[in-house]
Every structure is written in structure tokens, then in C-alpha cells.
Nucleic acid binder design. Structure first.
Length: 476
RNA sequence: GGCCUGAUGGCGGAGUGGUGACGCAGCGGACUGCAAAUCCGUGCACCCGAGUUCGAUUCUCGGUCAGGCCUCCA
């Protein structure tokens, strides 16, 4: 199956062709670790994690290398470290750990490489040296600046013609710049700030060179796919590209495909009361399962803007509930049944193929979700037809598709009873047993009273042919 | 000012030159002691104008509206 991706550079969708199918390379700009990341920061994490998974499916898990950097040199980190009177590493370690924990909770696989700026300094200064030697950079007043005149294609990625960038420049141009668009590769640190040695004096790297150097160090230029939020198109990615090409590494190419995800917009109206105005993933994960947040982030196509609202996350949760019910019901149906291996007629084989097809089409997640629901319906139909072979096969396909997309990893019972501690569970079981007795005695008023009691515990009980099941109701 | 997106039913959101996915919500029914879940059925949309076409929601042009980037930023 052909994988197609939309490329920002050519502004169109095209079949993806890695330079070496046994070594596919993907790089995504990661976080600056000075605080908890908000939910918008995790859209690219989830989107490119999905791409990572799809690539692994297409090329084999061992043939895809994914690097996502960590920016741990930054003014905000400096400030926070100064406030707390601790080394910057303390700050960056703390929030990197939190970031990785949140990402994992959202079902994101760990990237193959997670390079840090502070651990890539040699590669950074080395690449700056390369640029100077290739006449792509110059020194001025203790700074090293990239010479944008050295790169004829500067502005091509973002579509910003050079002369217009000058006209539109709003910032004060430093007097030592040869051209207003030139940008910093290395700059002196201010007194008291962290500094690293370099041939141009102690200082720190500019933001853009960090990524270029980390890419070259971790994956080697050129790479197959470079991803990130659309706000990074200019100047960050434009500058990365210029640096990479002018450094002499990777030839004329820097990245085969440029992918940019759309923004996540915060709802105008205030969100859930307990969230206040800040939608940190860290806080959201207290309220909703990670899979539900992941689903919400993929509910729209990755290139489209997405409005983050309460209804969005609730819809995501409801959608997953539907799939988990099928998983739950099919599991109960199959319990105790002996199903021969190698079922030749799994329900939903066509739908499963549709899911792969949708994902291969520039990560069309809405289409993939639609096919996922159709697949679930097929399993449901097989249950009604009491076709154990078809149910078992279809259920496996459903789980496989879910696994590919980073969903359905929970036990169905656990999914519906998440948030219930052991104490609550035993109370609920007790009440359900009492209610079963009342129902057996046809004491309906008593049975309904007990159901009200359960409802007061935020528990919903559902009578089934083989006894009652229960679940935690939606978060208030 | 420059560059670039988008405008689909009550809501979210794909897609297509010719019966408009999918999910949520709604309505009717089945099932249920009553519910929930499930099943059956059902209502509801392609911003405006012009053009191309046998035929446009889908292509072209114009308009209106909304959003993003041009500065740290996913």
C-alpha cells in the first residue's frame, strides 16, 4: 500500500519514498522544558506518534528512526532556575520527566532518540564552524550570524520572498547584521547565565542551529520527514533548512517531506471548572483517560485547526466507550468458547483494510475512525449472528487497528470502571448483590432505590442476561 | 501591508464532477419490571454570486466571513 503525505514545501500530497526503506528517518521539534506542557503542545506529539506507528507498520519497527529533540537551553529555563536557586539541569530534568510521562499517558511511543541541546554542544559548534568555512555564516561583535544571502532558496519553504521579509521586519535589526534577515547561530551569554565554550567565546547557540545539529547528530542529514507545528514553518524551519544545506551536510536536500500540524485552539468559553483557564495535559489526565485525550486530538485531520472544548473531549470519550463496549461484549460472548485457530472469515476484514488505507492517505484519522466504527459494527453483527469464528477474528482485527492507532489498550472492564478504587468497587458489588436479591423477589421499588444509591456514587448499573454490569458515569 | 488556510446537518468532522461518510445529540419502534446497553427505522447540511459542464457541494473567478503566520511559540 502506498503511503501518501502532504509536503509543505511542494504544497501537495505525494507518495512517500524514503531514501532507504530499511532506515526511514523522522524528526519532530520537541518541547522546551521549563514548565508543564499544555494540551496544544501535545497535538504534534500525538500526530507524529501516529505517523511513527504507521511508518513502523509499513517499513518494519526496526527500520524507522524517530528523533524528537528537547530544548534545555532557554531564557525561561534560566529564569526559573535562578528563581529556585538550582542548576538549569534540575529544571529541565523535572519538566522533561513530566513531559515524557504525559506523552506516555497519551499513548505516544518513546522516540528512538531524544537529543538534548546541552548534550549536543560539540555538534552544534562543529556545524557552526562548517557554516563559517562554507561562507554561510560570519562573525560580528561576538556573535556568529547566518548569512541569508548565502542561500538562494531562502524563503522557499514558508513562501516568504526575501524582499518582503525585509519590508515586513518589525523587530529592530541589530546593527552588526549584514542583512536584516540574518539570524543568530551563536551569541555571548549574559553575565551569570549558563555558557558553553566555543571558538567564538563562551556563549550559547541560537535556537535554529540546535535542531539542525541535533538532526545531523541523531539521524544524519538529509532526513526523510521533518515535522512540527505550523507556526514553526517560519522562521524556525526555514532557518533549519538554510543551515542544513549551507553546512554542506546532506547535499542540496535537508528533509524529503515537511509536515506541519495545525493549531489547537483554546475554547473561548472557560473550560471545566476544575481546569481554570489553563489546559495542561497534566491536569486533563486527572479528568479523562489518556486515550480519550488522544482520540480528541485526532478527531480532526492533523492539518486542520482544532478547537479544544469540553464537548470535544466528551465526544472522544463517548466514541471510545462505544468501541470498548464492543470489545467487552465480544469478550463475554467468546468467554468459554473454543475457537479454532486460523479463522478464515473474520468479520470486518475489508473495514480493517480501510483503516490502513485511510491512515496511509496523509493520516486521514476521521476516515480511519469511520472505518473503525464500521469494523466494530461488523463484530457486533457477528455477535448477534452467534458466529464465534467471525467474532474472534473481527475482534482481533479491531484490537490490531486500535493498537496501530494507539487505542484500545485497556481492559474493557477497567476502562469503564477507571477511577474506582477498591473500596468503591466492593461497595458497588455489595449493592448490586442486594439489588439482585430485590429483583429476584420482584421488589422493584427496592431495586430502584438501590439503583439510586449507586447513581449517587456516580455508578451506572446495567442489567444483562448474565447478571448486572456497572460503570463509572461520565465525569461531571 | 505580505504570505497561507478554511467556510458541509443541532454539534464535531471526512469526502466526492452525477443516489452527501462516520460519531454525538434528536425522533419513532423492539428489547427491558423500569432503565442502560443493543437492534430496527427516521428527520436534518455542502457561505453568496458568476463561469466551465449534460450535470458542481466537489473545478475556475469574484465576494463575504473566520482563522493562522510574518516576533518566543506545537
Amino acid at each position: 500500500m502506498t503511503l501518501s503525505l502532504y509536503d509543505t514545501m511542494s504544497r501537495r500530497k505525494a507518495p512517500f519514498a524514503p531514501k532507504d526503506p530499511s532506515r526511514v528517518t523522522l524528526y519532530v521539534c520537541g518541547p522546551t522544558v521549563y514548565n508543564y506542557a499544555h494540551i496544544g503542545n501535545f497535538r504534534p506529539v500525538v500526530v507524529f506518534d501516529l505517523l511513527f506507528r504507521v511508518l513502523r507498520r509499513h517499513y518494519g519497527a526496526d527500520h524507522v528512526l524517530y528523533a524528537a529533540n528537547v530544548t534545555d537551553v532557554d531564557d525561561k529555563i534560566n529564569r526559573k532556575a535562578a528563581e529556585e536557586g538550582v542548576p538549569i539541569r534540575t529544571i529541565s530534568d523535572r519538566y522533561l520527566d513530566a513531559y515524557n510521562a504525559d506523552a506516555a499517558a497519551l499513548g505516544a511511543l518513546r522516540p528512538t532518540f531524544q537529543p538534548r541541546v546541552t548534550e549536543t554542544m560539540d555538534a552544534i559548534t562543529g556545524m557552526i564552524g562548517d557554516l563559517i568555512r562554507n561562507n554561510g555564516a560570519y562573525e560580528a561583535e561576538g556573535h556568529v550570524l547566518f548569512d541569508t544571502q548565502a542561500f538562494a532558496d531562502y524563503g522557499k519553504l514558508s513562501g516568504h520572498p526575501m524582499d518582503e521579509m525585509i519590508a515586513g521586519a518589525r523587530i529592530d535589526v541589530a546593527p552588526y547584521k549584514r542583512h536584516p534577515a540574518d539570524f543568530v547561530l551563536w551569541k555571548p551569554s549574559k553575565p551569570g547565565e549558563p555558557a558553553w565554550p566555543s571558538p567564538w567565546g563562551d556563549g550559547r547557540p541560537g535556537w535554529h542551529i540546535e535542531c539542525t545539529a541535533m538532526i545531523h547528530e541523531a539521524l544524519g542529514l538529509p532526513i526523510d520527514i521533518h515535522g512540527g507545528g505550523e507556526d514553526l514553518k517560519f522562521p524556525h524551519h526555514e532557518n533549519e533548512l538554510a543551515q542544513g544545506v549551507c553546512s554542506g551536510h546532506g547535499g542540496r536536500e535537508y528533509a524529503g517531506v515537511w509536515m506541519h500540524n495545525g493549531f489547537l485552539n483554546m475554547a473561548q468559553e472557560k473550560m471545566s471548572k476544575s481546569l481554570g483557564n489553563v489546559a495542561l495535559a497534566h491536569d486533563l489526565l486527572e479528568l479523562y483517560p489518556g486515550e480519550a485525550i488522544r482520540w480528541a486530538l485526532l478527531l480532526g485531520h492533523y492539518r486542520q485547526p482544532l478547537e479544544w472544548t469540553d464537548t470535544l473531549i466528551e465526544q472522544a470519550k463517548a466514541n471510545l466507550d462505544r468501541l470498548y463496549r464492543v470489545l467487552d461484549d465480544s469478550g463475554r460472548f467468546l468467554a468459554g468458547k473454543v475457537v479454532p485457530d486460523g479463522a478464515q472469515s473474520p468479520a470486518g476484514a475489508a473495514e480493517h483494510a480501510d483503516i490502513l488505507k485511510a491512515l496511509a492517505d496523509d493520516l486521514n484519522t476521521p476516515e480511519a475512525f469511520a472505518a473503525l466504527f464500521r469494523l466494530a459494527d461488523k463484530v457486533r453483527a457477528a455477535i448477534m449472528a452467534k458466529d464465534a469464528l467471525a467474532v474472534a477474528g473481527g475482534r482481533d482485527l479491531l484490537l490490531d487497528a486500535g493498537n496501530l492507532m494507539g487505542f484500545l489498550a485497556a481492559d474493557p472492564q477497567g476502562w469503564f470502571q477507571s477511577g474506582a478504587d477498591d473500596d468503591l468497587k466492593s461497595r458497588v458489588e455489595g449493592l448490586i448483590a442486594a439489588r439482585a436479591d430485590a429483583r429476584a423477589a420482584k421488589d422493584w421499588p427496592q431495586a430502584d432505590r438501590i439503583r439510586d444509591e449507586l447513581a449517587a456514587l456516580n455508578v451506572e448499573v446495567m442489567d444483562g442476561p448474565s447478571g448486572a454490569t456497572w460503570r463509572i458515569r461520565e465525569q461531571a
